[in-house]
Structure formats: C-alpha cells, structure tokens
C-alpha cells in the first residue's frame, strides 16, 4: 500500500474502514469533529431536558418504591449528561458554550421531550418506549468510531436497559391491575406510540446527515432500519401486555419477516422539531431559568475558590474534595 501518497483524509478513512477507534488527539477532518460535537452535545442536552418530563412525576409517584426508582432514574439521566458533555469536551467544545447554544435555541435535543407527561402511565411509557427507542439508537453507538463517545455509551446503555425494564414493569403492573389502571396504560400508549417512532428521525431519503455519518461509522444503521427494528420489537411486547398499538395499518408481513406499519405524521414531526410542540417553550425555558437563577451560585463558588487560592488554603478545608461537586469554569 502506498501510504505515503495518501492524504490525511484518506488515511483517516482507512482507519475508520478498519474499525479502528479515533481518539481525541488523533487527526480528524473538521467536519467529523463538528458532526460529533453536534451529535454528542445534542445527546447530552436530551439527557438533561429529558429529566423534566420524568421529574414532573417524582413528587406524585404512587408509592415510596416507585418514587425511589424514578428519582434514581432521573439522577442517572443527569449522570449521562455529565459524561456526554465530558466526551464532547475532548473534541474541544466547552460545556458552557454547548449550554449557551442549547439556551439560545441553536442546539437541538430529542423532540420526544416536548410531549407532556400527563399520567403515571406516561412514566411507564417513557421507560418502556422512549428508553427502548433510545437503546436501539444507542447500542450501535457503543461501537461508534470516536473512542470517548463509544466508551460513554457503553455505560449509558447499561443503565438505559435497566430503565427500560423498569418502564415495562410499570406498564405490566398497570395492565395486571384494576380496569382504571389498564385504561391509564392504554391511553398513555395511544399518546406515546407515534412520537416514539419519530425518535428515529426523518425518513432515510430526507435525512441529510445519514450518508456521511454512516461512511464515518458514527452511525451504523439508517433511521428507517432502526424504526423497523423498534416496531418489530415492541409490537409483541404490547401484545403481551394486552395493549393495542394505535395503528390500523399494522400488520405482520411474512415475506419481510417484519411488521408493515402506518405512516408517521411527518407534519407533526417537523412542527415539534421546529419548536412548535406543546412543551418546547416550557422545557427550554425551564433550562434557561435554572441556568440563570443558578448564576449567582456558580459565581459564589468561583469567588470563594479564588479567595482560598489567594490565601493559599486548600480549596476545601472542611468539605469533601470530589471534583464532581465543583462547578465547571
């Protein structure tokens, strides 16, 4: 192989094709770096914004056990946000800049979180369907070409599959419970089914980033492939629960060994992506408020650390010294 004559870009693609991991200090095309920063920060933002619809039910969870599980779950999402922001930081993005982009509406997060959680069964659906869809999107990312992202995803996926089981268990308990509980489960499924199908993104022929992301092995399956997998996986689970999937066109196709299903309402999809879903405004505003109302806290922590530095005192004389508890500067 005449490697001497290959461009950096060709060498890079060669490593990708050989399934080698790209690490932060390696050379990479600018567009690869930008695509990853966009994707990882979007993923991190989704974790953080995703805390809101589920957080909405912590104080109303129906039992102490469910409350503990839900709180631990939402806390996990915050943890996922942390390691994803850290993975993006290895590419030279700063957390403050990523957050500023989110707050300014420039960076996206998963549209699914722009739907409201209206009943306890929604918490079941978010775990069962939304986390189920997220896992399908994310498991291939454990083998994605950028090392820090792939490693973060291994940890995220482990926790997500635990969350999904919890969500399914909430649904199962409801479906085996009183008629009101079963009705609550069905009503929630009716609302969440189509939005979760939208989580896989636009149809392949309308997905601008897919081809290149596949070439760089950032992505390993197309949107439509994953959507099909999801339907094939979830329909039997819904049947097991005794719930009806709200799609009249749904039918087993013997030839393709998969389900045929109806058309997603793409008009709704683009409306929500473009900021016009029921909760878009409130979700983003909640994040902006938390950030702005927390500014004085972050400033105080920095000012105090600076005073200590000037007095040549250890940063935390009387408190814990874990880095995780310090604000990022």
């Amino acid at each position: 192989m005449e490697t001497a004559e290959l461009t950096q870009e060709e060498l890079f693609q060669q490593r990708i094709d050989a399934d080698q991991r790209i690490e932060p200090k390696d050379w990479m095309p600018d567009a690869y770096r930008k695509t990853l920063i966009r994707q990882i920060s979007q993923h991190a933002h989704s974790e953080i914004v995703g805390m809101l619809p589920e957080g909405n039910w912590i104080t109303r969870a129906p039992s102490l056990k469910r409350k503990s599980i839900l709180l631990a779950k939402v806390q996990d999402e915050a943890g996922h946000g942390l390691y994803l922001y850290s993975a993006a930081e290895t590419l030279g993005a700063s957390r403050d800049q990523m957050l500023a982009d989110l707050h300014a509406g420039k960076a996206k997060y998963s549209s699914i979180f722009n739907y409201p959680t209206l009943s306890w069964a929604d918490i079941g659906c978010v775990g069962w369907l939304v986390d189920g869809a997220a896992i399908l999107n994310q498991v291939p990312l454990c083998r994605t070409s950028f090392g820090p992202y792939a490693r973060a995803m291994v940890r995220v996926c482990k926790e997500e599959s635990f969350h999904q089981r919890q969500g399914f268990e909430i649904m199962q308990t409801l479906c085996e419970g009183a008629p009101e509980q079963k009705a609550m489960a069905q009503e929630a499924l009716n609302r969440w089914w189509w939005p979760t199908l939208m989580m896989f993104g636009p149809k392949d022929d309308e997905s601008p980033n897919t081809a290149r992301s596949m070439q760089w092995r950032i992505k390993r399956f197309t949107n439509d492939e994953l959507r099909q997998k999801f339907v094939d996986m979830m329909v039997p689970q819904a049947e097991f629960l005794g719930l009806t999937v709200p799609d009249l066109a749904l039918q087993w196709n013997e030839t393709k060994q998969g389900y045929d299903f109806g058309e997603v309402n793409w008009e709704e999809f683009w409306q929500v992506v473009n900021g016009n879903g029921l909760c878009n405004h409130d979700r983003l505003q909640a994040r902006v408020d938390a950030w702005e109302e927390g500014a004085w806290v972050r400033e105080a922590a920095l000012a105090h650390a600076e005073k200590r530095r000037q007095r040549q005192e250890p940063i935390h004389k009387s408190g814990p010294t874990r880095k995780a508890e310090l604000p990022q500067d």
Binding site: M51, G55, K67, L71, Q75, L82, D289, W291, A324, Q328
Partner: peptide
C-alpha cells in the same frame, strides 16, 4: 426532589437528588 432538573449546575442537581 423538587429541585430535580432545576439545580444551579448539573453536579449539584446530582448531589441534591
């Protein structure tokens, strides 16, 4: 738990939870 998702910084959101 009312703080969950609304903390002044992510690390403190985690600590409060």
């Amino acid at each position: 738990s009312e703080w969950c998702g609304h903390g002044p910084i992510l690390e403190q959101d985690l600590a409060l939870a």
